[in-house]
Structure formats: structure tokens, C-alpha cells
Nucleic acid binder design. Structure first.
Lengths: 419, 419
DNA sequence: ATAAGTTTGTGCGAGGTACAAACTAACTGC
DNA sequence: GCAGTTAGTTTGTACCTCGCACAAACTTAT
């Protein structure tokens, strides 16, 4: 499979914008905004506005961005010519009179994005259209404690199968992986439940194999980006994604940007402390949030309280049993959601994002669990006047959010929305 | 081609109380960077580079920013003509040969900045030069539970005394205040220990009285800015300022910007939870960080352990007594610093800033306390390979950091460094 | 049916910004 | 004294956004 180079104005690698940013990262701490970077920035922002708001006409975009209509035309026209965007049919204007607006949106036939979700033991690959549609899903399994070469073979085979279904060369490949990831250097640091991945420079391997831009990030951050592009975080400037399950993690969208700490760290919330000298955690410390709000805790408590089938307890089942009248389930659900709430409370006190999207096990508990968590958070947080905290779930879709997020990572990294 | 108004793949439901989300979607936070704004941005960044790196020649600045020398000349020349910057004497070049560079820096005779530090019961006002020098300090006291008019009278009198010593009109006035501040609207929300300030629209009052730009922010954030402009945070892109004393607070510098949450909140770390169902806090909740790492806890423990003069115990005295051989002091110091460390650990796990500047009581403990805290943090954090965590103190100067920070706030808003 | 009004989208020139090339100034070393 | 090097300036060019004018397309009133 051989891929052509990409259009030069936005999604390619060698635009002045990316060179500018690279120079900034390399050299000093100061980066001036150059003329050519400006164009790339504004192009990126127009695209972002399209993602955030859905199909919009040039005039709408101009109003949204507070710029002249002609500016939007200038930005948008080359993209239409390159078939990245398409002009829709004139929609009946909601205002009376006037020339009807022609909405613009992403071309469904534009190049897609490769996306990979890497969890202990399983690989999922797919293609994501710019419109968010998921196609050509391929799944495979690998031995978490096996041989590195075997893993790479499975990975390339899976990805090749998926990418071969693309009509044109994808813009790039995004990988969402469990564990601790160094997204700056594109390597997997450690995955507790899959030692075979430890230290794997996956970005370099895939880049070499497929000759495409490759981006990797950790699972919660992919969920965040998935929420932001195509989920409840759409259009929001500040929110957090929180994942609960066997482990806990989170990621933040701050001031319109994905927060990515030094070397792509941050958001390792599972091991923040909510109980000094509390229960022993997998990490060797005591009283981590993970010791009271993850599935192992829930299983242990379910067993202690004599609930049926404690080994396979989930939030979803807890909600079901509580709805069916089990007092024990109701009580445990309350304690579970309260424990989850503590981590969100600490986030709220720290960053005050006001908006949280839940994934993983508690998301399986649906609206009921979300509302319980919201109530606990409200009780436990020092509220400011006029402040409203929103807790949403986005748990459906078998990893589709993470896959869309992985795709979104590629898009974000190539749009260079950062100034 | 026809588009659906709302894309069909937006998964996830929203909790009933999420008016903010709808507002966010509608409001459209998209802003393009205009050509004219570009100049202002770059001017600001050049000035920031001067602050961060000290006097620098045009050529140095150009290298630092990765731009053409002519660009720097174009930016800098008007500022020299405006007497904001001055050209220094040709310094002996460190490289051999070539025309010697003329370093640029802030004109000591340029307009200064007004700064006010507002703590329960006391007002401190001063002038801050662009070089960081502090002049014309005026102090006054007010009744924390008294009359609002009386407070305003004291405030205007103090500020008038200070401002009258300025040769030229200052660029503006920056206020750093204890308590909960709405920096967006320029009002003091609540100050627990000074009810007279509750709900005071201080920015509006001072703006009207002095006809100058006025900025207000809460105390920890002023410390942060003070650290950033003139302290250990100089030139850093990511760090946190942490204040301990009667209360705990913090503020963050993230990716080269002061983090200012919605309505200027965030950083209210004192009431993050480190001990679920722990001791009762002033705020009415249980187990806040403030219950184990602030002065009230230290006094209580000192009394319990039989240390001398427990009512006036401070970290500084604890260090002194421990150095003099008191085992009890040594043990309490260890526990105190460990408790402080927990809050920093949670910050580190969340944001991974890697660099923390201590203020307030623990800063009084100097290097000894900082090193103890650092050791505890290192033990309690899940470390990533190659990661180093730095803990520094900046406790000297009787509020000078906060005053410089207050001045820095004006500068930031005046220079429009934030995009 | 016709005219007036409204909104969308597009040329064109103006204004501003950064960049590249070429130039002068000043200093070092042989 | 001359070559080499670095700093800062001048000049022309490319690029971007903005405001204005104008055609296109649709609604509404007469």
C-alpha cells in the first residue's frame, strides 16, 4: 500500500505552521505568531467551529467567529476545491427573505482517519470519517505477556486489514492505549495488565510501516477527544472525561485545548489520595482514589454485603438490582457513587471545570448513577454562587468514543490549533 | 447534498441541569486571530521574553523567538520611542568578533504599576517598577467586621498616598485579595475572616475613583504571577504556587498561561478531600486538605504533643527546634510536611506540573521544609521515568511576591498576553 | 406580475504584518 | 590592513484580514 502526500494547507505535516511550532518547542520558550502560521491557525479554527456546531454556512461561520464573510470565503474555498469540505443544498432560511445559505460540512468522501484502540489483550482498529462515521472495524487479540514481535505482527496485520478498505490514503493513524503513555515521544511506558507493551515505541514502528503520521495517547485522553468531537463535550471549552473500571483515569479539556502535561502525562487521577494511610493500592501506596472507586473495591464490598454474584458486579447491575428493590444494592450504589464523587470533587476544587463526562463502569449505570454522583458532588464541593455542575455519561458504543477520540487526536495534532 | 441539522452520532444524554451546555453551543467561542491582533500578540510575547530572560539584544530575541531580526526591530523600535524600553550599553560580546549587541530592557523611568495586597484587617499598597522594584509602600489597617464605607475610605486613602508618589500615571492598579474572588466581574465574593468585604465590587469602585485600569485576583494567583514575573517561576511554562497558612490555596501556570477557571475560580485546593469522612473542616465538609495541613492542625498537634507555646507554632519555629535537637519537633515537622505533601501529590497526579513554589507558613521553614516535602512527594507519587519534581520556597519579603504579582496581573491584562 | 427589501457570497483595493535579501556598522584576529 | 563575523537597518515582497461595492437568490408587499 502506497500513499500520496497530503494537501498542503492544513492536514499535511510540512506546513509552515508545524515548522513554526516545532521550532518553538525546540528553541526558546517564546514563539511569535508568524503570518503563514496565522492562516493555518484560522483554517484550523474554522474547521473546529464546523465540528463543534455542525454544518454551517459561510455567513454563519463569519458571525460565529466575528470576522468578515470574505475572510471565511477565503479560508473555505481552497478546502472545497480540495474536496475536504462540501457545500450542501441551500437550506430553507429560518429568517424571512434573503438568499438562502449554503451549509458547509466535511466531505463524507474525504480521506478518513485510522484509529486504533489498544487494551490489554485486544486490538481494535477502524476508519473514522471526518463526519464521525466508523467503518471497517477489525478486531484481534494478542497475548498480554507474550512476545513483542508477535504483538507487532498482530498489530500490523489488523491495521493493514482496516486501512486497505480506505478509498484514499488516510490523514493519519491515532492510537488510544491503556496504561502510561509518553505521547511526546510516542512510546508506551507501562501497561500493568499487558507487559508485552512495556517500552514499545509504537509510533515509530507504525510510522515506518505505514508511512503515515501516527499519534498515540492514553485511553482517557482519547475518550476526552471523542467526547469533544462527537459526544457530550462537543463545543465545550472546559470539561473533563473520567473513566472508571478496573482502574481510574481522567483527562481534561481546558480553555478549548486538550490538557497534555509534560511528556503527555497528567490525568493519572486513580492514584491521587483521598484517604491518607488508607487501603493498600496496586501501585504500592495507600488510600488512592482507585482503592475506593474502582471495580475491585465494588466486588469486595458486594461480597462483604452478601450481594449475589459479587465477582461479576457492575454499576449497571447494581442500578438494576436497586431499581428492583434491593436495599443492599441501593446502599452500595450510594456508597460507590459517593466514592466516585470524591475524585470529581477534588478535580472540581482544583480546576473548576464544572462539567464531567463519565465513561466505563459507572457510565454503565446510566442517568441514575450520573445523577447520584452529581448529588454527592454538589454536597461535597464548596459551591460558588451561580455555579452549576453537570455530570454526563457517554458509555455506549463498545469503545466507539475511544476510537473516534483516537481519530480526533490525529486531526487535532495536524490542525495545530495551538498558537 | 443534504445535511442533518444535528449529527446523528452524538451519543450520551445530558443531565437535566445543563443550561450552560446549551449556552456554550450557542455562544460560539470561536475566534479567529486577526492581522491587527497579531501585532499586539507578538509585542506582548517579546516583552514576556524580556521579562523571562532579562536584558537581551534584538538578535538574541530573534533567535529566542525563532523569527527574523527585522521583525524584532519593528516590534521593539516603537517601544523604545515610547520610552518603555531602553537600549543598554554595548556589552562585550561573548562570542568573538562581530558588532557588539545592545541589550534592551525596561526603562526604570517608565510608568509604574499600582499594587494592593488585601488581607483580613490589613491593606498594603505600593508601586512596582517594570523591573520589579518596589517603592512607596503604604500600610493601613481596617476593621474586618466594620462598615463598608469606612473600609473604602481607608482603601482610597492608602492607595492615594501611594499613587501620589508616582512620577507619571501608572499603567493600572492590581489588587490581590484573600478569599473567594470573581476576577471576571471584579468583585470580592466572600472573605471568611473579613465579612466587610463580602460582595464588594472593588474593581468598579477603584476604577471610578482613580480612572485607571484595575484588575483583581485572589491571593494565591497573585503569588503565582509574582513567582512567574520575578521569582522562581520566571521563564517556566508549567508550575504551581501553593500557599499554606491559616488556609490553603494554590494557583497554576499551565502551558505558559495563568490558569483562571470559570469566573476566575479554580485552585481552591484547601477543600479538596484527602481523608474521606475525616475531621470536620471550617467549610462544613470532612477531611479537607486544610484540616491536616494548615496552621490550626499544627497548633492542635503541637499542643497534643506537648511542644512549647503551641498557640504560636509555625513551620519556621518547628524547623529551628528540630535543628536544636527536639525529637518531638522533628516528628511533628515530618508529619506536617507529609500532610502538605499529600495535596501536592494530588496536584501532581492530576496536572503533572513537576514544579511547585511554596508560600506562607511552610515557606517559613525554608529549604529544610521544602526538601522534606519533596521527599514525601517523591515517595507518594507514581513516578514516571526521567521525571524530576522540584519544590522551591519563595516566602521572603513580607508580601512582596504578592504585590509584584498584583502588579504583574495589570501588566498581563495591559499587554494582552492571553489570546 | 412587479418592485422593494433582505441575506448570501464574491471581486477588488487598502492597510498592516512578517520575511528575505542586501546593506552598513562595529568588532576580532591574523 | 584585510578577511571574517555579528548586529541592526533599509527596501521590496508575500500574505492575510477588512471594508466596500455588487450580483444572485429569495420573500413580501402592492
Amino acid at each position: 500500500m502506497k500513499f500520496e502526500s497530503q494537501p498542503s494547507y492544513s492536514l499535511g505535516q510540512r506546513t509552515p505552521a508545524s515548522r513554526e511550532v516545532a521550532a518553538g518547542e525546540n528553541g526558546g520558550n517564546v514563539t511569535l505568531v508568524s503570518q503563514s502560521a496565522l492562516g493555518a491557525i484560522n483554517r484550523g479554527r474554522v474547521l473546529q467551529a464546523l465540528y463543534d456546531n455542525g454544518p454551517k454556512s459561510r455567513a454563519d461561520l463569519a458571525r460565529l467567529a466575528g470576522v468578515n464573510r470574505t475572510t471565511i470565503t477565503g479560508i473555505v474555498q481552497p478546502m472545497i476545491e480540495d474536496q475536504l469540505l462540501v457545500e450542501g443544498d441551500a437550506s430553507p432560511s429560518d429568517v424571512k427573505g434573503g438568499k438562502p445559505a449554503r451549509p458547509l460540512y466535511f466531505n463524507p468522501d474525504a480521506p478518513m482517519l485510522g484509529a486504533v484502540l489498544l487494551l490489554p489483550g485486544t486490538i481494535q482498529a477502524c476508519l473514522v470519517a471526518l463526519t464521525g462515521e466508523i467503518k471497517a472495524v477489525t478486531k484481534a487479540e494478542f497475548d498480554p505477556v507474550g512476545d513483542t514481535k508477535a504483538f507487532i505482527a498482530v498489530m500490523t496485520k489488523t491495521l493493514t486489514a482496516t486501512l486497505s478498505e480506505a478509498q484514499q490514503a488516510p490523514f493519519g493513524i491515532g492510537v488510544a492505549s491503556a496504561g502510561m503513555i509518553d505521547s511526546d515521544n510516542g512510546t508506551i511506558l507501562t501497561v500493568n495488565l499487558a507487559p508485552v507493551l512495556t517500552g514499545l515505541p509504537l509510533v515509530a514502528i507504525l510510522q515506518k510501516r505505514f508511512s503515515l503520521p501516527v499519534v498515540i495517547d492514553h485511553h482517557p485522553r482519547a475518550l476526552l477527544v471523542g467526547d469533544r468531537w462527537f459526544g457530550p463535550g462537543r463545543g465545550q471549552q472546559n470539561f473533563a472525561a473520567v473513566y472508571t473500571g478496573e482502574v481510574l483515569g481522567g483527562a481534561f479539556f481546558i480553555d478549548g485545548k486538550v490538557y497534555r502535561g509534560l511528556a503527555g502525562s497528567g490525568g493519572e487521577l486513580g492514584h491521587s489520595v483521598v484517604q491518607i494511610d488508607g487501603a493498600l493500592c496496586n501501585c504500592g501506596k495507600h488510600g488512592c482514589w482507585e482503592t475506593v472507586a474502582a471495580l475491585p473495591w465494588l466486588r469486595k464490598e458486594a461480597a462483604r454485603m452478601g450481594l449475589p454474584h459479587p465477582k461479576s458486579i457492575t454499576c449497571a447491575r447494581l442500578v438494576k438490582e436497586a431499581d428492583e428493590g434491593s436495599n443492599a444494592a441501593d446502599e452500595l450504589l450510594d456508597r460507590y457513587t459517593r466514592n466516585v464523587a470524591f475524585g470529581i470533587v477534588n478535580l472540581q476544587q482544583t480546576l473548576c471545570l464544572n462539567s464531567y463526562v463519565l465513561h466505563g463502569d459507572v457510565a454503565g449505570g446510566g442517568m441514575r448513577a450520573a445523577e447520584l454522583i452529581r448529588q454527592h458532588v454538589e454536597q461535597l464541593v464548596v459551591k460558588r454562587p451561580g455555579q452549576e455542575i453537570s455530570i454526563t455519561v457517554n458509555g455506549v458504543g463498545e469503545g466507539h468514543t475511544a476510537l473516534r477520540g483516537a481519530a480526533g487526536l490525529v486531526l487535532s495534532s495536524h490542525l495545530k490549533l495551538v498558537i
